[in-house]
Amino acid sequence: MLLSYARNKHASASDRPDGDLLVKAAVQETFFAAKVEMVVKIPDLEISSVEGVIERCFTGECRQTIPLLQQVVGLRIGSGIIKLVNNFVGGPHGCPRLADLVLECCEQVILRYTVEPLGEILSKKGNELKTAYQEFLTQNPRLINSCIAFAEGSPLREGIDAES
């Protein structure tokens, strides 16, 4: 019988003096604890180094998956990264939890460059907000129909054709 369970997670990205990014992700839960740290080369967004440690896990076999992390070195954070990381680190001989930590790091890198511009959009009101969103969608056509806010019929989609 499980009487208590706790899970805490942390992820961050910070600028290094050489201009690259240092990205960290850690999870601490009742059964599992691990952390991953990677350096991401700018402007290519290429993972140039990665380290990881599993501090607490289910079986000793989990720790044997740490060397698989090196397979993500050289990958670029961009289109297709989720499939690649899950394949290399979370595959049949890997650890899906470790792969998740790598992907948390990738997410941090993307947020590092997208949160601020999105914040600028959200600071606008009324028609200015609508116009800013429409400009955002025009620049990022792949987001069209990606969620209900950007689906057909949404005021944010007015004047934007999915096929354009």
Partner: peptide, 17 residues
């Protein structure tokens, strides 16, 4: 594809790189 995402402009990707 997918590289020149919104907000990524300040990555300053040059043609050379």
């Amino acid at each position: 594809r997918g590289f020149l995402l919104f907000g990524f402009a300040d990555l300053s990707m040059t043609l050379e790189s």
